[in-house]
Design a protein around this nucleic acid. Sequence first.
RNA 1: GGGGUCGUAGCUCAAUUGGUUAGAGCACCGGACUGUCGAUCCGGAGGUUGCGGGUUCGACCCCCGUCGACCUCGCCA
Length: 594
Amino acid sequence: MHAYRTHHCAQLRKDSVGQNVRLSGWVYRKRDFGNLLFIDLRDHYGISQIVVEKDSAAFPLAESLRSESVIRVDGKVNARADDAINPNLITGEIEVRATAIELLSEAADLPLPVFGNAEYPEEIRLRNRFLDLRREKLHANIVLRSNVIASLRRRMIDQGFTEFQTPILTASSPEGARDFLVPSRIHPGKFYALPQAPQMFKQLLMVAGFDRYFQIAPCFRDEDARADRSPGEFYQLDFEMSFVTQEDVFAAIEPVLYGVFEEFSGERDVTTPPFPRIAYKDSMLKYGNDKPDLRNPIEISDVTEIFRGGGFAVFAKAIEDGSVVRAIPAPGAGVRARSFFDGTNQWAKDEGFAGLGYINFKGGEGGGGIAKNLGPERVAQIVKQMGLGPDDGVFFSCGKPLEAAKLAGLARTRVGVELDLIEKNTFKFCWIVDFPMYEFDEVEQKVIFSHNPFSMPQGEMEALMTMNPLDILAYQYDIVCNGIELSSGAIRNHKPEIMYKAFELAGYDRSLVDEKFRGMINAFKFGAPPHGGSAPGVDRIVMLLADEPNIREVILFPMNQKAEDLMMGAPSEVSAKQLRELGIKFTNDGPKPQ
RNA sequence: GGGGUCGUAGCUCAAUUGGUUAGAGCACCGGACUGUCGAUCCGGAGGUUGCGGGUUCGACCCCCGUCGACCUCGCCA
C-alpha cells in the first residue's frame, strides 16, 4: 500500500464499498459522540467522512485530534445508511470506517479558522496566508486563476501565438510609473530596473521576425495600491502581432477573451464578438469616463445649449466662462423623496465638486429650483432631447468639460446603483478607441503624451506636421469589461522619423530619444514590420470571473497596502556585507536602517 | 503626502449612548453522549477596551496626540 494514500478525498464512491483504503489530509471538522466520532477529512480535491468507533484501535488518537492536523487514515469503505447520506458532499454516499490513524503533523491553536466563510482582518489573513489559502473560497479562486491562465495560454497558442520569456533585469524607462531598481554589484552606482511591461522587448521580437508573440508576463511598478491594483507586481497577457491593423488585433484577441469568459462565467452572459467600439470622445460624453460600465443603462447628455443664456443664472454664467452642462437621467426617480435628490447633491459636494443640480418630474411636471428658474420651455427641451418619462429625475453636472464629465460619470454610477439599474450576471465588453495622442498638462503648461508614446498617430507624419497636436488621435485602444480597464494597447509607431517627430512635439529632442530608447529606435532602422498589440491584465480577468472586488482575493501571496509581505517579512534590511558588495552606503539624509 | 472608516478575549461582534463585576458565538481545555455533517448539552480558562495624555466622582464611550489596518485622492506613459 502507498505510504500516504490509495485515493484522494473526493475520489471514493458507492462502487468502492468494501475496499480497504488509505487516505491522507487535514482534519477539517470533528464531531465527537463519546463512543463514536466523525472526522471530515479534507485535501485539495475534497472531503471524505471518516467514522471512528469506540472499539477501533484508532479511537484514542482520533479523540485527541485537533482541527487542521494532518493525518493518515486506514480503513474500509462503508455505504452510508439512506438517512445518513449527505447530498452536499461528492463522497456523501460513503464513509471510511477507520482501523488505524497516524498523526503526520499536529496543528497548534489556529489564528484563523479554516472552516466556515466568515470574514477576517486582512492583516491576520496575510500573516497566515498558508491557512487562509486552505479555506474553500480562496483555494477555489487560486485554482480558478490557474485554470484561466492555462486556458489563455491554450487559446493564444491555438491562434498561432508563440510564448517567449523576456528579461526581468532590464533598464529603467524614463516615462511611466516609478521603477523598482536593483543595484548592480559589478557596476557600482548603476541599477537594473524590473520591467513595468515587456513593451520594448515585444516590439523588438516583431522586428526580429517572430510575427505573433505572447507571454503571461510579470510586470513591476512602484506605485501605491488600490483595491483593484496590487502594489508592486501583477501579470499581463502580453501580446504583439506583425503586419496588422487595429481591427486585426481586435479580431485576434476577442475570441480569446470571449472564450475564456464563456468557459469560466458559469450562468453569466458574455458580450459576443465583435465587442462594441466606442470612441474616447463619445465615451467621455456618454459615460463620463474612458472605462464605461455598460451594465448601467444610463447615458449622459450634453445640455449646455439649453442652459446657455437661460434663467438659471448659475449655469448660464458658468457657460459663458467655458463650462458645459451634462445631464444624467434617473429613470423613475422623480417620485422619490426630496432627500434622494438633496442627498445626491450632498454626495457630489463631499466628493469635492461644486454640486449636482436636479429636476424631479412628477406626472410630467418638473420640480426644484432649476426647473423654476429655467422656465417651462427650456425644461421641455431637456425632456425632449433626453427622452425623459413623466416621473423621471435628471441631475446636472456643470463645470469645465473634463470636470463636468468626471462628475457626470460618477453620478451615472451612483444613480445606477441607487436605483438598482445595473444589469446582473453579465460581462459587458467594449473597446475604447481613438484616444488622443497628446494632452495639455495644466501644471507644467505643456503638451504631453496622453497615453503611450510608442503609439502610431492616426494620419502618421502628415498629422504630426500639419495638425494641432491636441487634435491628433492615436491608434490606441483599451479593452473594458464592466467598468474595469483590462488593458491598453496600440498599433505602434515603427518609423524612426515619425517617432522623433512625435517626441519633438512633446518637447523631447532627437538625442534624448536616441539615448532613452536606443535599443528600440536603432532596431527600427533595420527593417521593422508594422505591428501592434495589447496586454490584458490577468489578475483583473480573474477578479471579474471570481466576482471578487479585491485583487488580493485572486493572488496567492499578495502584499498589503503598504507594499509589505507580512508573512515573509518583505521588504527587509540586508546585511552590511551585502551593502558593501553593492557599494551602497546610507547617508544621514537618506533612509536609515532601523 | 491629503481625506474617510475602523481598532473591545486567539477570531467575529455586543455593552441600554458617561455608571458599578466589559458580555455572547466560534476556537481552546475538561466532562456527558453510538449517526453526525455549523452535532448537542454541562463546566472552565481567556481582557492594561491599540498606545499615551486630558476632562470627570466615574471613560470602551467625550477631547487631544500617536500607532496600525483597510478604502480613497494624488500616482499608475
